[in-house]
Amino acid sequence: MTHYRAIWISDVHLGTSGCQANYLLDFLKHNEADTFYLVGDIIDGWRLKKSIYWPQTHNDVVQKLLRKARKGANVYFIPGNHDESARQYIGMSFGDIQVVEEIIHTTVDGKKLWVTHGDLFDGVMQYAKWLAYVGDNLYSLILCMNRYFNLVRIKMGLQYWSLSQYLKHQVKNAVSYIADFEHIMAREARMRNCDGVVCGHIHKAEIREIDGLIYCNDGDWVESLSALVETTEGELKLVFWKTILGDPAPSIANAEQLNTQTRITPSLEEALV
């Protein structure tokens, strides 16, 4: 079991066949934190409006998060565009999980990080929402293909690999959109007198400096299978959980070895240099 000061996860998309709930559940079993931030799109309300898909593993993820809150962890839920209906409950708590519009996280060394999903600063979401729905349908089709592709890879003993993520990073317009989004989020963080931002929304895990600010995207649990963490020493890292460890829980040394092999690990200080 590895203990962190904070863990950020987003874009889980519970309620869809593309959600890798078994990987997230395994991650939650082997990692604890003083504070958990659920940075939007945890439940996919768009997809659930069309059809009900809710296997036991999706329910287990919800129960696991509720259990962590009951045991004393601070758990904050920042709704995104796919679970935007939860925004009507901002300021309320459900099962010790607090629903907030956005929040400021202060690191060990006093850096202020603005935490928000990011859809409210996405031009497509704000001015061409119909296009976002069309893109979501195409995305779901690719994820369906990706699901069967990875079933074959798992049988061959290979790690999870995202076809959708590969295609997205090969398309020039998609790469440009991601870069624009990242700069917008950094600019908004500066306007809030913060030292950086933590967001989700675009399904691209990243830690880097933009115009002197720290930009962190915790990725997703559809393509990246990633979370952002802050260690007890104040180091920010991305953890990519593409291998299921299973039960019983491994030793701390074994869990740390997996994380070291599969994550991007620049410290906050290194990222700001």
Rank of each mutant, 00 (worst) to 15 (best):
V152C: 03
V152S: 01
R153H: 02
K155P: 14
K155L: 04
K155Y: 03
K155T: 07
M156V: 04
M156G: 05
G157W: 02
G157C: 01
G157Q: 00
L158N: 06
L158E: 13
L158R: 10
Q159G: 13
Q159E: 10
Q159K: 14
Q159C: 13
Y160K: 05
Y160E: 09
Y160M: 04
Y160L: 10
W161T: 15
W161I: 15
W161Q: 15
W161N: 13
S162I: 04
S162Y: 01
S162T: 11
L163E: 09
L163W: 08
L163F: 12
S164A: 11
Q165I: 10
Q165R: 14
L167S: 11
L167C: 10
L167P: 15
K168E: 10
K168P: 05
K168M: 09
H169Q: 09
V171K: 12
V171F: 13
K172Y: 14
K172N: 13
K172I: 11
N173T: 15
N173A: 15
A174H: 07
V175I: 14
V175G: 06
Y177N: 08
Y177F: 12
Y177I: 13
I178M: 05
I178P: 01
I178K: 04
A179L: 10
A179N: 14
A179I: 15
D180W: 14
D180A: 10
E182R: 07
H183D: 11
I184K: 07
I184C: 11
I184L: 11
M185D: 03
M185T: 11
A186Y: 03
A186N: 03
R187I: 12
R187T: 11
R187G: 10
E188Y: 13
E188A: 12
A189N: 03
A189G: 00
A189Y: 03
R190G: 07
R190Q: 06
R190F: 15
R190W: 11
R190E: 08
R190V: 11
R192F: 02
N193E: 09
N193L: 12
D195G: 05
D195C: 02
G196Q: 01
V197L: 00
V197D: 00
V198R: 03
V198P: 02
C199F: 01
G200E: 03
H201A: 07
I202R: 00
H203M: 01
H203P: 07
K204S: 06
E206G: 03
E206D: 15
E206W: 15
I207H: 00
I207F: 00
R208N: 05
R208P: 10
R208K: 14
E209L: 05
E209M: 04
I210H: 01
D211S: 01
D211I: 04
G212L: 01
G212I: 10
L213Y: 02
L213K: 12
I214M: 08
I214W: 02
I214A: 07
I214V: 15
Y215N: 08
Y215D: 07
C216Q: 05
C216D: 06
N217H: 06
N217G: 02
N217D: 05
N217F: 01
D218E: 15
D218G: 07
D218R: 09
D218I: 14
D220Q: 10
D220C: 08
D220R: 03
V222D: 06
V222S: 05
V222E: 06
V222F: 09
E223G: 04
S224A: 13
S224F: 08
S224K: 13
S224Y: 12
S224G: 06
S224R: 09
S226K: 04
S226V: 15
S226A: 13
A227P: 02
A227I: 12
A227G: 01
A227K: 04
L228F: 03
